[in-house]
Design a protein around this nucleic acid. Structure first.
Lengths: 127, 127
DNA sequence: CCTAGTGTGCTAGAATGCTAGGACACGGAG
DNA sequence: CTCCGTGTCCTAGCATTCTAGCACACTAGG
């Protein structure tokens, strides 16, 4: 799983970074007690200003996903996996609901939405 | 079909207004030769600053969907229905592609995405 | 003790989107 | 002709997001 920042996207960079760690922690890769890259390291990896990382990490901290330890780094909390899985459900569900909302405004039937999803899924790749 | 502006959404207000007319014209309601509300009328209907409407209408004009007529109003062009239908396809397709992109980053299989879409569709309403 | 690496805080600027209010030019109706 | 509604343009301010650079406090390791 790689973080592919896209400035053209609607999502602010710091939220893209936040989601990246939510999805990774939900998948179990940085486990509780382990640490995510430091603010400066992450900024250099993603070629973004450190303040943007601070913003993203701040959101993760306020959600109880990471615990800042001065002089050490950002530690994944014990409750992080549960919180991240909940957030993953919520985020993707919201995306789908937005899709239905937009499709409804466009006068598209719900069955048509499902068909459109299948079409594009097949169009994207054989896998 | 009603325009329900949502400032909390990622989409800027002027783009929400632009899409509203794209979808309506694609559906054929304001037919070629007919006019859409004036900048000031639309602003008052939607409770938004006239400049925001100017921005939205400017996009529609640059796409060849409407033709500004000073002292008269904004006229729907002859090619508008075709252009709007194309844009509708493109906009919804992009929405679905973004969904798959986000789901892939979250480590979700494509079949799971289809299942999620069905679940939420059933969850939204019986219709 | 000292250094390096860490999180945190601060001010400042650029770009975007929205609001606010004013001004002007055009065209139909009277 | 005048008047009103129309599109168009202008400056200004505010909030958000990102960039930029600097300073400080804390901790581990030598």
């Amino acid at each position: 799983m790689t973080l592919h920042l896209n400035p053209e996207l609607r999502l602010p960079l710091f939220e893209q970074i936040e989601r990246y760690w939510i999805y990774r922690i939900a998948a179990g890769d940085p486990a509780p007690g382990e640490r995510i890259p430091s603010v400066r390291d992450m900024a250099q990896q993603v070629l973004v200003h450190p303040n943007t990382i601070v913003n993203a990490y701040g959101c993760l901290e306020r959600s109880g996903i990471i615990l800042p330890r001065r002089g050490i780094g950002m530690e994944v909390t014990a409750e992080a996996p549960r919180i991240c899985k909940e957030k993953r459900e919520s985020l993707l569900g919201e995306r789908v609901r937005e899709l239905f909302s937009e499709a409804e405004q466009a006068g598209m039937d719900r069955a048509e939405v499902v068909r459109l999803v299948r079409d594009i899924m097949n169009q994207i790749g054989g896998k």
